[in-house]
Design a protein around this nucleic acid. Structure first.
Lengths: 212, 212
DNA sequence: TTGACTACCTGAGGCTGCCTCCGGTTCACT
DNA sequence: AGTGAACCGGAGGCAGCCTCAGGTAGTCAA
């Protein structure tokens, strides 16, 4: 949906920039041809495995599926978190871009809600993702932290705009908003995409439960 | 808080009844003296371990802390789920009892909200509990299923009462309500009890996000 | 009190997955 | 072609899960 599959060209375009500006902690795309090849193969295998078995998928299986020894996987992605980060960075970037694109709109409430929907969708890409993202958001020194913080800012901006327009109660903080989004994302991630209530849950949240 | 610690007498009073009526799947309290002793010791160790390390705590550690070999633990609790079920049954019972107690009140909305608070608190007793409860709720043949279903019913009754009084929108289903509670419980369980926003989140949920 | 029955206990052992380390390989650059 | 660094492979140590065969000791009846 957001380019999480078959994003080879896109990786090539964005990873170099990201690697430069973001942090030394994030695994960088290797330069040597064989290294690049393996890096990409591992990433592709990881995306599939995470989608199928969640964030706890066996790393040895991923390495095998990528046709690579376990040591090679660890060379490129020293921790499970770095691998998760790399396979979900695109989605986070999309989220930030989307926020930038609609900021300043004439319908700040609609813009916020639409963004919330997309956020929940991405947070629940696979089982276990939300947990990792929450940790990343508040814990510096975590691979996804920079990107998460950026996305947090994007959401906060949309929220502020909606509040300034008087559409959202003024006492709602960004942290509270994200807590609620995380909760809904967790539900979606847990119950699976078959029974996907997330849009409805967001509506309930926004509209309120109590009768008018 | 709900009698989840030091509940020896209480266990003695309730477990026998529960074992009779609930299911053959749930580990029954053994009759022989040494068996009872070990069963209780394992349960106590498990409560501590789950509180400290979450539902994924090492079963071998629990056995060791209980002064028992690993095989003994598995004899009494054939799966991790049965152990979790046994250590959280009290809380679920409390929840059902609480609902029965306030049903028929003159303030159905207040009753519902108070119950929701207690539910969220119990669901997030330790990390990983909500996930297990959600699975139990919809998956028969799971140790906690019977108790979960009963609790589901209790919540649904309170919801219906509040809806009949016109206090809660009529189109809200019990499943949706529980989804939202689960989500909030997950947030609480994940962020830890230090920063406990759950009451506030419930208020936001009930009051609605949008400005009046 | 004694004996037998069997519920109960033990812990070695096979399995999976995590992660490290170092000898060997191969790419890239001159 | 030669060299150095980047890269790869996979054995191996560790932790946790779970099972099973053999031993132990409560319980109950005589």
């Amino acid at each position: 949906m957001t380019g999480s599959t078959d994003s080879t060209t896109r990786d090539a375009a964005t990873d170099d920039d990201a690697a430069k500006e973001v942090a030394p902690l994030i695994a960088q795309r290797p330069k040597r041809a064989d290294g690049r090849r393996n890096y990409d193969a591992i990433l592709a295998a990881a995306r599939t495995a995470f989608a199928e078995h969640g964030a706890g998928a066996s790393l040895e299986d991923i390495a095998a599926k990528a046709g690579v020894a376990i040591g090679t996987l660890y060379r490129h992605f020293p921790t499970r978190a770095t691998l998760v980060e790399a396979s979900t960075r695109n989605g986070l970037e999309d989220l930030v871009a989307h926020a930038k694109h609609v900021s300043g709109t004439e319908e700040p409430l609609a813009a916020l809600v639409a963004w919330m929907r997309q956020a929940v969708l991405h947070f629940s890409t696979f089982r276990g993702l939300v947990g990792i993202l929450v940790r990343s958001m508040y814990d510096e020194g975590t691979p996804s932290h920079a990107m998460c913080a950026q996305m947090h800012g994007s959401g906060a901006d949309l929220l502020t705009a909606a509040q300034d327009a008087g559409a959202i109660r003024a006492d709602l903080t960004p942290v509270e908003l994200f807590d609620l989004l995380h909760g809904i994302a967790w539900v979606r991630e847990t119950t699976g995409p078959e029974r996907d209530d997330s849009d409805r849950l967001i509506d309930l949240l926004v509209g309120g439960l109590t009768a008018r």
